[in-house]
Computed example of a mutant assay.
Amino acid sequence: MSKQWSRSLRVVVGIASAAVVAGSLAACENSTESSGDTVYFGVSGPKSGTSAEYGRLWQQGFDLAIDQVNAAGGINGKKVALKWEDSQSDPKQTVPIATKFVGDSSIIAELGDFSSPASIAASPVYNRGKLVQYGFTNSSTDFTKGGDYSWSPSITLDTIQQAVTDWVRAKAKKVSVVYLESDWGKQDFGFFQQYAKEKGIDIVYSSSILPDSQDFRPVLIKARDANPDAVVHLGYGPDGALVVKQLRDVGYTGPFFGGQNTPQFVELAGSAAEGDIVNGVFSPSDPSPRIQDFVTKFRAKYNTDPGDFNVYAYDAVNALVQAAKYGGATREGVLKGLREVKDFGGIGFSDTFAFDQQTRRPGKIKPIELVLQNGKFVPVTTSK
């Protein structure tokens, strides 16, 4: 799902505390009704900085969804559009963006931010301002604890690592693990440790890595020298590409689990990542008519195959539109829809779902195992 995760929890909590006051003041001036002929969703996400690639992929998914929604009549006759603020996925920037969105009465829901720390920092503002914060790529289990207005369809880290450790166990009994030095990375590694122990996987070496580093070789040499059956990377596309390339540079030739299903990862990693296994929610090779209709339309618009982060964004717009059609094109209407609609779906989900009202996440959604073959990620079950 990558993100600039190097912010510490202390920074996030400090920002969040200040945000409560800002959100409260903004909420006092805010009307929940969207006036005029256009309904707006606010987007807090990266268009520049180290996570800009994700914003680019989001934009493609957003635009395709909005084109289709508006061609079909919008939300009860109103057109749908976005108001986007570039956050660089930085917690220090998401708080003022949230205050701005809460104070803009034309915005009926917010999409983003990309990283969980960036979203969590802004959650107090959205919750005090009673504006739905739809963190559709926020996999941290802590995100939806922010309040009744924090929602996410993202698969959580614990569910991801339950699946990943199954895939690892099929190839390895002992592993070296590198993970991002961030709150998110530590939480992810904690879940990996938990499930690895349960499944008899021996972690022979582990180390955090700094997201902004360009040279991981000192850590990777130690990971190699621990003689693992596989190396596991818990992080994102840009750092994952460097890790796998540098692993091959220092002579490691075994299985690699890590990186992300993004064009940037595939391009940066090159042949070093061939055979890499990642978790995902989507593959353009899925033969179902629903998936192939989406893939055809995406290719026609962008002349390339869609990937996970295009799908996340496409599905997020459609979910909020469905909620607003049900409950009304207002902030209250979106919340009502998320609470009561029982048949949300999308390209990234095999079945329809309803949100669990306690966790504000869907249940029973699991990642799929993807392997990189000839420069493309395909489901493991169809790659053999």
Rank of each mutant, 00 (worst) to 15 (best):
residue 114 F to R: 00
residue 249 D to G: 07
residue 374 N to Q: 12
residue 78 K to S: 00
residue 325 K to R: 12
residue 293 D to G: 09
residue 336 K to A: 08
residue 258 G to F: 00
residue 358 Q to T: 15
residue 270 G to Q: 02
residue 277 I to R: 09
residue 79 K to L: 04
residue 163 A to Y: 09
residue 10 R to M: 12
residue 116 S to Y: 06
residue 350 S to M: 09
residue 59 Q to Y: 04
residue 275 G to T: 04
residue 182 S to T: 06
residue 62 F to G: 02
residue 315 D to R: 06
residue 14 G to R: 05
residue 29 E to C: 11
residue 129 G to P: 04
residue 301 K to F: 09
residue 330 T to S: 13
residue 56 R to N: 15
residue 209 I to Y: 13
residue 41 F to R: 11
residue 222 K to T: 03
residue 216 F to D: 03
residue 257 F to T: 00
residue 6 S to F: 12
residue 204 V to S: 11
residue 144 T to C: 03
residue 29 E to T: 15
residue 238 P to A: 15
residue 366 K to L: 15
residue 223 A to C: 01
residue 312 Y to G: 11
residue 256 F to V: 11
residue 361 R to D: 07
residue 295 V to N: 10
residue 96 P to D: 01
residue 38 T to Y: 03
residue 256 F to D: 02
residue 158 D to V: 05
residue 38 T to G: 14
residue 181 E to F: 15
residue 369 E to K: 14
residue 350 S to D: 05
residue 136 F to I: 04
residue 2 S to T: 15
residue 253 T to E: 12
residue 85 E to K: 07
residue 34 S to E: 15
residue 91 P to Y: 01
residue 92 K to R: 13
residue 191 F to S: 14
residue 290 R to V: 10
residue 286 D to G: 05
residue 326 Y to M: 11
residue 249 D to R: 01
residue 183 D to K: 03
residue 139 S to I: 06
residue 75 I to W: 08
residue 384 K to D: 02
residue 277 I to Q: 12
residue 377 F to A: 02
residue 305 D to H: 08
residue 310 N to F: 04
residue 214 Q to S: 10
residue 30 N to M: 09
residue 59 Q to N: 10
residue 109 A to Y: 09
residue 99 T to Y: 03
residue 319 A to N: 07
residue 261 N to F: 00
residue 6 S to M: 05
residue 231 V to F: 08
residue 206 S to K: 07
residue 302 Y to E: 10
residue 218 P to W: 06
residue 10 R to Q: 05
residue 43 V to R: 09
residue 281 V to H: 05
residue 368 I to G: 08
residue 99 T to W: 02
residue 384 K to S: 03
residue 69 V to W: 06
residue 145 K to N: 13
residue 313 A to D: 11
residue 294 F to P: 04
residue 360 R to C: 05
residue 143 F to C: 01
residue 241 A to D: 00
residue 14 G to I: 07
residue 199 K to I: 00
residue 127 N to D: 14
residue 56 R to F: 13
residue 218 P to H: 14
residue 378 V to K: 05
residue 370 L to G: 01
residue 172 A to I: 06
residue 38 T to C: 15
residue 4 Q to R: 11
residue 96 P to N: 10
residue 35 S to G: 12
residue 23 G to K: 00
residue 28 C to I: 06
residue 39 V to P: 04
residue 148 D to I: 11
residue 230 A to Y: 11
residue 269 A to I: 00
residue 365 I to K: 08
residue 183 D to Q: 06
residue 295 V to M: 10
residue 21 V to C: 07
residue 235 G to L: 05
residue 368 I to C: 01
residue 333 G to N: 03
residue 90 D to N: 06
residue 201 I to A: 04
residue 382 T to F: 02
residue 192 F to S: 03
residue 148 D to W: 09
residue 124 P to K: 04
residue 221 I to P: 11
residue 136 F to W: 12
residue 79 K to E: 12
residue 53 E to M: 14
residue 91 P to D: 04
residue 106 S to Y: 04
residue 256 F to E: 04
residue 39 V to Y: 02
residue 164 V to Y: 11
residue 119 S to F: 09
residue 19 A to R: 06
residue 354 A to E: 15
residue 345 G to I: 06
residue 162 Q to H: 00
residue 291 I to D: 08
residue 384 K to N: 13
residue 360 R to K: 02
residue 293 D to Y: 09
residue 82 L to Y: 11
residue 308 D to E: 01
residue 267 E to Y: 15
residue 71 A to G: 09
residue 270 G to N: 02
residue 42 G to C: 10
residue 297 K to A: 15
residue 87 S to I: 11
residue 149 Y to Q: 07
residue 317 V to C: 13
residue 152 S to W: 07
